[in-house]
Design a binder for these strands. Structure first.
Lengths: 336, 336
DNA sequence: ATACTAAATGTAACCGATTTCATTATGAGT
DNA sequence: ACTCATAATGAAATCGGTTACATTTAGTAT
């Protein structure tokens, strides 16, 4: 393996000059630079990146902590991160936690040991104080999740207002008995979507019926099960706002099996706008999370920190959008 | 930052001994070892991993080259890789190529520069000779794709036989006019699935009608469009084997819109067994690719290479399975 | 030409662990 | 007690760039 000193020798310059040609070309006279570059080319010299990382204690690598890569939402955010990282010469190290806090803690060591230059969390289950301590010392960004009372840079969407939009859409369609199937209520996202649902009802002077709120776990099956319960009510709902798309498919399936037509007898709105919602029959009206953009933005915020640029806003809320398809009854033709 | 020499000093031993305690404990007397360990604990010493990587020119990191992380099949394989990697103390660096060959080539440099200890490709678009050259020097495994005439360790499923199984299933259900919507035919996977389809027809003495073979691109829309074409035929098919699940949903959608019931008037079989196929209405009969296992196996093969273990088989073909749901008409109850 | 400043290059220390080789301690066997 | 093999430890070189600082070269102004 040809190394920098070999190049230096052949070019009749010092290692330092070769190094400068590579990392700080303006500091070298054009003649010298060209000469060195030619030799580099000729000898097919490739710098030893590990030596560089070691010396500079910088790796041009960031760590992305994901609860579960196999989840579409996360893999799309990851896509956005990867994209922005690549554009800026950074590499992405993957950390799948399988939702285990311990693994979050484990990966913290990568930061502390400077194996990576920064970290993007797609879920923060760890202790707030620990995280606060970490973010004081290292570049960290949180996205797709948030924590109250932690001044960590965050990229999210406004789940409350989105849920409100979704629910209001159903209200505007003339529904007054609207059920909500929530996500796991220990998650802030789920609580926020529930909050938005509540707000929409109240602001529109609608009665608020606790029996219409059922907790799911974001799975198809839970949507199916909770909907089955809802249909058994004396006064079943005429519309359902499901906290994600996958549960919405369960809702629709249960409704159909019960002889209800969607959207004829039951209007459904989901959340996330995963591919599935466009493909499903009927197409599911849903709130589109700008997942790719979230990832991209998160990476940009991280870069600002890494480069020591003073950040203005720390909390970034991205716009989301109501995508109207068939399941809510507002549109019987569109495909989306 | 406390370093190894600090520990050595405090423990009254040499750096070498501290290093041995960490990397090769058996080589140190128990007394010394315990003493050093205690000091390490006490001083909260963390070895500088970058220095280690540099010195050993080994990173305990592998590179995974993915055409598109946002694709479920790939993200699941990635899940398997990540799992096996983690279990063996390896980290996963993500390389999304967006299907661009140039990016595959770019990432080759990571290997050559020893920034990673090995590479798993989920798609090989690069030149065969280049790849052959690379795999002679570095640990490489290919999965989810394969190349003819390259002796690279590969983990795949048998697309030909799986497609045959899928098609035969439709034949067994009494169909004789079976269409096939293929994937992009420049991909080996697509060609293989087509081959299997052909074999099934021939082996069962069925007429082989070219008009029933339509090329799609794995998207929902293409399934929809090709099915629309097929239904316009004088003698339309009574069954369709779609080269993936997403296109199968398009097929079903087109059929429904045309007043056909699935499976009543049209039987459909897909491929991949992505979550969607279980959730869709009707549930889609499909071939299950053991994606997670493929990833796991690929990582294991890579580890063997990294550790210099002589590999027996180089080509690993994993078992796949026909998952029977509603869309083929064999089962009207199951949910899957 | 001279002095002085700025640009260009060189020298050498340095990052921190790993590992080879030499040296010393330990223990078994007679 | 003595020899010899083996285990345990230490000293020092090494991995290959980067960078602070010193030195030389070039350029400008007078």
């Amino acid at each position: 393996m040809v190394k920098m000193s070999d190049v230096a020798e052949k070019a009749n310059v010092s290692k330092a000059t070769v190094s400068r040609v590579l990392r700080n070309p303006e500091a070298v006279k054009k003649d010298t630079r060209d000469k060195v570059l030619a030799i580099i080319e000729q000898m097919n010299y490739q710098p030893n990146i590990l030596a560089r990382h070691f010396r500079r204690s910088q790796t041009n690598t960031i760590l992305v902590v994901v609860p579960n890569i196999m989840n579409t939402v996360f893999s799309h955010i990851l896509g956005g991160i990867e994209h922005a990282a690549g554009e800026n010469g950074y590499r992405v190290l993957l950390a799948n936690t399988n939702k285990q806090v311990e693994r979050e803690y484990e990966y913290l060591d990568h930061l502390k040991q400077r194996q990576v230059d920064g970290m993007i969390l797609l879920s923060a289950r760890m202790d707030k104080n620990v995280l606060t301590e970490v973010m004081k010392q290292f570049p960290v960004v949180l996205t797709a999740d948030y924590l109250e009372g932690v001044a960590i840079p965050t990229v999210t969407i406004d789940n409350v207002s989105s849920a409100r939009t979704a629910t209001e859409h159903l209200i505007n369609m003339g529904h007054s008995r609207i059920a909500h199937i929530t996500g796991p209520l220990h998650l802030l996202v789920s609580q926020d979507r529930l909050k938005g649902y509540r707000q929409a009802l109240l602001q529109n002077g609608l009665a608020f019926d606790n029996i219409l709120i059922q907790e799911g776990d974001f799975s198809h099956e839970s949507g199916y099960n909770q909907m089955t319960k809802l249909m058994a009510l004396e006064k079943p709902p005429t519309a359902v706002f499901s906290a994600n798309d996958e549960m919405a498919t369960g809702v629709i399936k249960a409704a159909k099996e019960n002889g209800l037509s969607v959207p004829g007898d039951l209007a459904v709105v989901g959340f996330d706008n995963i591919k599935l919602s466009a493909i499903y029959d009927p197409g599911i009206t849903t709130i589109a999370q700008p997942t790719f953009e979230m990832g991209k933005k998160a990476m940009e915020l991280l870069l600002e920190q890494i480069n020591g640029i003073e950040m203005g806003k720390r909390q970034h809320v991205l716009e989301n959008e109501l995508i109207i398809r068939e399941s809510c009854g507002a549109n019987f033709k569109k495909n989306g």
